[in-house]
Simulated assay, not measured.
Amino acid sequence: MNPMRLTGPEASVIKYDLLTALSVAGLNGSPTLQTTLMRLIAAVTARYNWRADELTVGQRDLARMWSVNERTVKREIKRLLDGKILICKRGGVRGRVAAYQLNYDEIAKLSEPCWCLVGPDFDLRMKGRYQGQSTVKIVQLSDYTKPAETEDAAVQSAPGTWQRAMARLAKENADQFNAWFSQLKYTSFDQGILRLRAPSKFAQRYIETHLMRPLVSAVEAELGPITRIEFEA
């Protein structure tokens, strides 16, 4: 997003919509995600420099704002960086406070499944504002017409394939598939244990807390019963 838009005539609408997106993503997430995004919203509302497009607040100040210790602040900042919700613009070295920037594309990707929950007007605004800028990898169904060369031989002979399970998910909910499932990497399926690799820990947590039911249903329809799903680093 162009930072100038955050200080122009439509700036207030853009900011409120951004905070709304973070709020509903948190409310529909795990307790950990709720807490993390609530703390981020507080910091952004109080201290984000929209003109410079950065958040520069010391750990001590954040600890006081969030009513936590500085160790918790470090853990929360790391979680937001790992989830790509924040981007580090300048590291905090030699007594200088670190500067962080909101990653608008990642926030849009995280919150998109929840836009419709706010209302059709909000959903329409957000799609018009962010979908053209999204860096989410779109996986075409044609990619699943033949097995990947590195796919495990045991799955090749199983009743169905990982590709067909992904095709099922894409057919059921294309937006959800493009935002979350398309980025999953298949590792193995053995004795009911499905091993996958997620693009980030944040995406992994979101899938674990929101999307396990459709994932398990689609995979079991093609590969057979699943006893558990393991995400590899």
Results as ranks from 00 to 15, higher is better:
91 G>H: 04
68 V>R: 08
89 K>A: 11
112 E>D: 13
114 C>R: 12
117 L>A: 10
99 A>E: 01
104 Y>E: 07
80 L>T: 03
114 C>H: 05
107 I>V: 09
95 G>V: 05
41 I>W: 08
103 N>G: 00
54 E>M: 03
37 L>M: 02
38 M>L: 14
46 A>S: 04
63 A>E: 14
56 T>N: 12
89 K>L: 13
37 L>V: 04
55 L>S: 07
97 V>T: 01
67 S>P: 06
72 T>A: 14
62 L>K: 01
63 A>K: 02
96 R>G: 03
105 D>I: 05
98 A>I: 00
80 L>I: 02
46 A>K: 11
42 A>P: 01
65 M>H: 10
66 W>G: 00
71 R>A: 12
120 P>T: 15
121 D>I: 11
79 R>Q: 11
43 A>I: 06
61 D>L: 04
90 R>H: 15
59 Q>T: 00
43 A>M: 10
70 E>F: 10
89 K>W: 07
45 T>Q: 13
115 W>T: 01
81 L>W: 09
75 R>Y: 14
102 L>Q: 09
42 A>M: 04
65 M>G: 04
98 A>Y: 03
93 V>K: 14
56 T>S: 11
45 T>D: 13
84 K>S: 08
85 I>T: 03
63 A>N: 10
70 E>I: 00
37 L>Y: 06
59 Q>G: 03
51 R>E: 05
41 I>T: 11
56 T>K: 06
62 L>Y: 00
105 D>Y: 07
118 V>D: 14
62 L>S: 00
38 M>K: 13
95 G>F: 10
82 D>V: 04
58 G>H: 05
76 E>K: 10
107 I>K: 11
43 A>P: 01
111 S>Y: 07
115 W>Y: 15
87 I>K: 03
71 R>I: 10
40 L>V: 01
42 A>H: 13
88 C>G: 11
46 A>D: 03
45 T>H: 12
100 Y>T: 02
113 P>I: 13
40 L>G: 06
119 G>E: 02
40 L>Y: 11
53 D>C: 08
69 N>F: 11
112 E>P: 07
100 Y>P: 00
95 G>K: 11
78 K>C: 12
44 V>S: 07
97 V>F: 05
50 W>P: 01
47 R>N: 05
82 D>E: 07
42 A>L: 12
82 D>N: 06
52 A>M: 09
78 K>R: 10
82 D>M: 04
84 K>M: 11
105 D>N: 06
49 N>Q: 13
72 T>E: 02
55 L>V: 02
93 V>W: 15
49 N>A: 14
122 F>H: 15
112 E>G: 14
